[in-house]
């Protein structure tokens, strides 16, 4: 009698199942595994293990960084950060990020757009090339630039003759940073744009929009969150890169040291608290990045159309 009533009301099979499973509701029934989820115990163990792993490998070092940085008090912390070499390192990091991120943004959008909307020869090569920086060790990346632009490298004599400094100067730092951060925007956008397909773009074209109008009015708004996400990751990596930059830097104090390099220098001068102070800035950046990323994900999951 009961099941007939349920059937006539037009409930879906899922609703029926959950109705049946809910009667009678006892403690034992509630913690039984359903077809698509584990028992309470298993859930708790898995979540606990994940949290413990995270706490150990990520949270603890983060706490240590801030603890060590503030060990001698807030005043020392601020004075350490206002040392001229350190300020120069902060400035350099900001400049490098300010150049590398927009460049990679433009490239990433262009590459993702071509890959997802068109078919062309060499498409898979382009995709592999974009992933290349992930596969190559950053130190090797730095070395490549030394081999090309260094005094003994391919372009070395020409550059020297024209007094153009690439390696051991800002351009070298930019090249190394750009190389290691190239994939972030593109890789975030490609699956997104492929999932979105070309139909909206085709619709726009048929309605008379030009290529540029289509891109600006249709494509861009659809990938807005993907772009934001990619930029955030790209920026975090650009500011925190060590290996590649270290090779091409020359370590000239007050001139070619970024924040990560400055941390190493301070540490090597027994200036541990100052080293941790600069490291804490980078850690703060990481936290801010995480917060913004979470906010972005939350907003886009809401399906906010604007």
């Amino acid at each position: 009698m009961e099941s007939q009533t349920l059937y006539r009301t037009g409930l879906t099979g899922e609703a029926i199942a959950s109705e049946l499973l809910a009667l009678p509701a006892t403690k034992a029934t509630r913690s039984r595994a359903t077809p698509t989820s584990e028992t309470r115990v298993v859930q708790r163990v898995l979540i606990g293990a994940a949290l413990a792993y995270f706490a150990l490998l990520v949270l603890t070092p983060l706490i240590v960084v801030f603890y060590q940085a503030l060990r001698k008090g807030l005043e020392f912390y601020m004075i350490a950060l206002s040392d001229s070499d350190t300020l120069s390192a902060i400035r350099l990091t900001l400049i490098v990020a300010a150049v590398a991120v927009p460049l990679n943004l433009v490239f990433g959008v262009a590459a993702a757009w071509s890959i997802s909307k068109f078919d062309f020869r060499g498409k898979s090569v382009l995709v592999s090339l974009i992933d290349l920086p992930f596969a190559v060790s950053p130190v090797i990346a730095g070395l490549i630039y030394v081999l090309i632009f260094g005094l003994q490298g391919w372009l070395g004599p020409w550059l020297a003759a024209h007094d153009i400094k690439v390696i051991f100067a800002l351009p070298g730092l930019l090249l190394a940073t750009i190389f290691v951060t190239v994939p972030f925007v593109a890789r975030g956008l490609i699956p997104l744009m492929e999932a979105q397909g070309k139909a909206e773009e085709e619709a726009a074209l048929v309605l008379g929009a030009s290529g540029w109008q289509t891109f600006w009015r249709v494509t861009l708004p659809n990938i807005k969150w993907g772009i934001i996400y990619g930029v955030i990751l790209c920026n975090a990596r650009a500011m925190g890169e060590f290996g590649a930059v270290s090779v091409v830097s020359g370590h000239i104090r007050g001139a070619t040291n970024t924040m990560p390099l400055q941390v190493e220098i301070l540490y090597n001068e027994y200036n541990y608290v100052a080293a941790f102070a600069v490291a804490s800035l980078l850690a703060l950046l990481a936290l801010v990045t995480l917060a913004v990323k979470t906010a972005v994900e939350w907003r886009s999951a809401q399906g906010a159309p604007q």
């Binding site: 139909a199 909206e200 085709e202 619709a203 726009a204 074209l205 048929v206 309605l207 008379g208 929009a209 030009s210 009015r217 249709v218």
Partner: peptide
């Protein structure tokens, strides 16, 4: 864009 045709897509393709 210059043919002045109207096209209705199978999955609407609304913006």
């Amino acid at each position: 864009g210059e043919r002045r045709v109207g096209f209705v897509f199978q999955h609407y393709a609304l913006f």
